[in-house]
């Protein structure tokens, strides 16, 4: 069995300490967490958490079951094999001079990204997409000199109707 990235989506109660409980569980059981994103869901009082973990399927199944045992976790599913929409958002602050700015803007256009801040020696790019897209844009911008990067980590939903 090989290590693959799995996407788990958990509906959790929006209470103090819940994020801590989840993070503590990953640490305590030595599960390898790639990213964790959390925010309010469509239901008041509940948040939706997207966790990307790497490991073989037995390990990830153990992660899912242990998460499900947390009292504040309402439901958790491994949606890796399902048809999903998965996105992350990155903000990239890249060196830009008068001579390189237009080239950067062209690249940004191709990726359907946005420039959200401009200063005399840098621009900040906002890009949304799957990890490959974000990574490709980063790669192209690297030659200009990247000053800072921040990413949200993956958020995901299954496509189509929810059961």
């Amino acid at each position: 069995m090989s290590d693959t990235k799995h996407t788990l989506v958990a509906l959790v109660e929006d209470k103090p300490g819940v994020l801590n409980r989840v993070a503590s569980l990953f640490r305590r059981r030595a599960f390898n967490i790639q990213s964790l994103a959390v925010g309010h869901s469509e239901q008041p009082g509940l948040s939706r958490m997207t966790v990307v973990v790497s490991g073989d399927s037995a390990v990830v199944e153990q992660v899912r079951k242990q998460l499900d045992k947390l009292i504040n976790v309402i439901r958790v599913s491994d949606i890796t094999e399902e048809d999903i929409v998965a996105r992350e958002l990155a903000l990239i602050k890249v060196n830009a001079t008068a001579s390189t700015r237009s080239e950067i803007m062209q690249i940004v256009d191709i990726f359907r990204a946005n420039i959200v801040d401009v200063s005399s020696d840098s621009v900040t790019v906002e890009v949304t997409g799957d990890e490959d897209k974000v990574e490709s844009l980063l790669e192209l911008l690297r030659s200009f000199g990247i000053k800072e990067v921040t990413k949200t980590g993956r958020v995901a939903l299954t496509r189509g109707d929810t059961q």
């Binding site: 037995a58 199944e61 242990q66």
Partner: peptide, 8 residues
């Protein structure tokens, strides 16, 4: 009774 014990 604990599903997490199965196959652990």
């Amino acid at each position: 009774i604990d599903p997490a014990e199965i196959g652990k």
